[in-house]
Design a binder for these strands. Structure first.
Length: 202
DNA sequence: CGCCCGATGTGCT
DNA sequence: GCACATCGGGCGT
């Protein structure tokens, strides 16, 4: 399986958030930190779209916390929640319209020893199969909020990765929305492939 | 493996 | 004061 390492440029993010979420599946998320490379293939992502989407942080309007989502596309929006967890998102276009893609799962490919230690030696399947698990494994927090994802040697960036075959991509409603009203609760804005699907590609 | 629930603290009403 | 785009331990199956 060929994993391409050219960095996606800013224009990749400057379109409909649902399209960005779809096309992020199979890409390579890279974290460079004091000389080491941690990376994985993106398996799962969700779109959050504008102030009218009642599941999106921007539904309360622009605040200090969610301001990054209103900025230009291609930057990381990293926020803190549940008193202990960080979440990694990719801001999408157009500028001024608040939208972002939450990364929910990756398949680790680089830096497995370090990821294992950060994840407290848990089983490999549990390393990065959740949004806060990704940020734990890759050491992401507020320091990297508003970081560009499209810089060639950026500390956090997304590369071309692998091609997901037509028909492999699955969708579902978004996870963890609680009492969010319809139609937002059921919007099929979660895009994903399984670890097994990727491993079967060889 | 699945369900349940407590942890933990910040932003926003 | 409360909700929160979650996680992991404990216990039952």
């Amino acid at each position: 399986m060929v994993i391409l390492k050219s960095v996606l440029d800013q224009s990749f993010y400057d379109r409909e958030v649902t399209d960005v979420a779809r096309y992020l599946i199979g890409r390579r998320l890279v974290r460079k930190s004091n000389g080491t490379t941690l990376a994985g293939i993106i398996l799962e992502a969700e779109a959050y779209r504008g102030e009218e989407d009642l599941a999106c942080h921007a539904h309360v309007g622009k605040t200090k916390r969610n301001a990054v989502m209103y900025g230009p596309s291609g930057y990381a929006y990293i926020y803190f929640t549940y008193g202990m967890h960080w979440m990694l998102n990719c801001v999408t276009g157009p500028e001024g319209f608040p939208a972002a893609v939450l990364l929910r799962s990756i398949l680790p490919t680089d830096g497995l020893q370090i990821i294992a230690s950060r994840r407290h030696q848990r089983s490999p399947k549990e390393w990065c199969n959740g949004p806060a698990k990704i940020t734990q494994a890759l050491d992401l927090d507020s320091r990297l909020n508003n970081t560009p994802l499209f810089h060639q040697n950026g500390a956090l960036r997304i590369e071309e990765g692998i091609r997901i075959p037509e028909g492999m991509l699955q969708t579902s409603p978004r996870i963890g929305l609680g009492d969010t009203p319809e139609p937002w609760l059921s919007k099929p804005w979660r895009y994903f492939v399984t670890t097994e699907q990727i491993e079967s590609m060889n």
